[in-house]
Structure formats: structure tokens, C-alpha cells
Amino acid sequence: MAKPLPALVRLHLTGLRLLLVFTVICGIAYPLAITGIAQLIFPGQANGSRVKLDGRTVGSSLLGQTFDLRRIDPKAPSLPDPRWFQPRPSAAGAGYDTTASGGSNLGPNDAGLTKTVQARRLALAIVDGVAPASVPPDALTASGSGLDPDISPAYAEEQVNRVARARHLDPAVVRRLVRDHTQGRVLGFLGQQRVDVVTLNLALARLG
């Protein structure tokens, strides 16, 4: 007759069996089931909300990116390209660096932030041909993540004439694009209206 295993050994074996069972359920079966459901019902969102141009992935509608002159020439200075709608400033790395998401952590009374905001206000007023006082707040300050792709409709409207002029387009055409890409509040009451710069610029690219 086999000698029964000590209680401590039986306890460890029971724990090991439970570990294996829950590993299979929670570590394999559940993730596969959720992934399959997501791919079936929300394939675009499940794959990162990627946006494509001519069949090539050029970004994600969830992540902002820079639209500066270096997109044309890597040796060009890091200056905004007037042909594109510009996102809000970013404190993520050198700007919209997905490996360094974060804000500047500077408070409203920080002298450096105040000076930076004033410089941005004057620069944008000159570039977009508007009065400094009319530059909206989101054009002057970075988001908490540094990766926010959205700007306010006011900031998008400020850029319409500059983009139209640089692309030799009728401002009404560009303004219509902005209106078509303006999203309402979430559930009708959360947050504010917003414009996704990445998808808006993608629509501009498709105009040719």
C-alpha cells in the first residue's frame, strides 16, 4: 500500500494545479477570447486606429505627430510646414515621441512657461496672420500626455487661411474639411468639440 504524501507536499501540488489552471484561463484563454472579439467587432480600434495613405500606414488617429519641414527634408530646420495644420505643442521628448509621453510639469506661475507661452503666441500670430490675443489656449500649451492628436475648432479655424494659401486652395474648401472633421462632445456632454489633426491632414493629402 502506497504511503500517503505529507500534507505540505499535497498543499504545494494543489497550489501548482491551481496555478496551471488559472494561467491557462487568465493568461491564454481570456486574452485570446477578448482579442478575437475585438478583431471581429472593432478591428480598426483593436489594431491601433491606424490611418493609411495610398495603402501605407502613416500614423494613428489616437496619436499626434509633428508636421514640420523635416518631413520634406531631414536636414531642414524643425519649423512648422505651412501646408499642414499644426498640432498643439508637445513636451514628449523632442515632440510627440511615443517613448517619452508626458507633460512639461510646469505650473501656471512658472516664469519659463510664461515666457514660452508669450513667444508661441507672437510666433503663431505672425505665421497665421491673426491678432496675438485671438490665439487659442490649446495652441500655446502642451497636453498632459504630449501625444494628444486633437486641437480645438478655434485653433483649426485660425490655420485655415494659411493652409489654403500654401496649397493654393479655396479657403472655403479647407474650412469645409475642418467642419467635416470636427467631432462633438463625447456622449453629447463630456469634454469639448475637437479636431483630430492627423485625420484632417490625411484628408488634405488626399486632395492632392
Score class of each variant (00 low, 15 high):
Gly59Arg: 03
Arg50Leu: 14
Arg88Phe: 09
Val21Arg: 13
Ala100Lys: 15
Leu40Gln: 13
Asp81Thr: 15
Arg83Leu: 04
Gly64Glu: 05
Pro77Ala: 01
Pro108Phe: 10
Asp138Arg: 04
Val130Thr: 14
Ala119Phe: 03
Gly27Asp: 01
Asp68Pro: 08
Asp128Leu: 14
Thr57Ala: 02
Ala46Phe: 09
Val58Gln: 00
Ala119Thr: 10
Ile126Cys: 03
Phe85Gly: 06
Phe22Ala: 12
Thr23Trp: 12
Asp73Tyr: 01
Ser49Val: 04
Gly36Gln: 07
Pro89Ser: 09
Thr35Asn: 10
Leu40Val: 13
Thr114Glu: 13
Asn109Ile: 03
Cys26Asp: 08
Ala133Val: 00
Gly95Trp: 06
Pro87Glu: 00
Ala91Leu: 08
Gly95Glu: 08
Ala46Met: 03
Ala94Met: 09
Gly102Tyr: 06
Gly64Ser: 07
Ala33Ile: 14
Gln45Trp: 00
Pro80Met: 14
Thr23His: 02
Asp110Tyr: 05
Ala29Asp: 00
Pro136Asp: 04
Asp110Met: 08
Val127His: 11
Leu79His: 12
Ser60Leu: 12
Leu122Tyr: 05
Lys115Tyr: 00
Ala131Glu: 11
Lys75Glu: 01
Ala125Thr: 07
Leu124His: 15
Leu32Lys: 10
Gln45Phe: 00
Ala76His: 03
Gly93Ser: 08
Val21Ser: 06
Pro89Gly: 07
Ser60Gly: 05
Leu40Cys: 13
Gly107Thr: 09
Pro77Phe: 07
Ala139Tyr: 04
Thr114Phe: 05
Pro89Lys: 02
Leu124Ser: 12
Leu63Met: 14
Val21Asp: 02
Phe67Tyr: 15
Trp84Thr: 06
Val135Glu: 05
Val130Tyr: 00
Thr99Lys: 10
Gly107Pro: 05
Arg50Met: 13
Pro89His: 13
Asp97Ser: 04
Pro74Arg: 11
Gly107Lys: 07
Pro77Asn: 07
Gln39Lys: 10
Thr98Glu: 09
Leu69Trp: 06
Gln45Tyr: 02
Val51Ala: 04
Val51Trp: 03
Ile25Gly: 05
Gly48Asp: 01
Asp68Cys: 13
Pro80Val: 15
Ser101Trp: 04
Ser104His: 11
Asn47Glu: 15
Tyr30Thr: 14
Gly48Cys: 06
Ile28Gly: 03
Val135His: 12
Thr66Arg: 11
Ser101Lys: 05
Leu124Val: 06
Gln65Tyr: 04
Thr57Asn: 00
Arg56Gly: 11
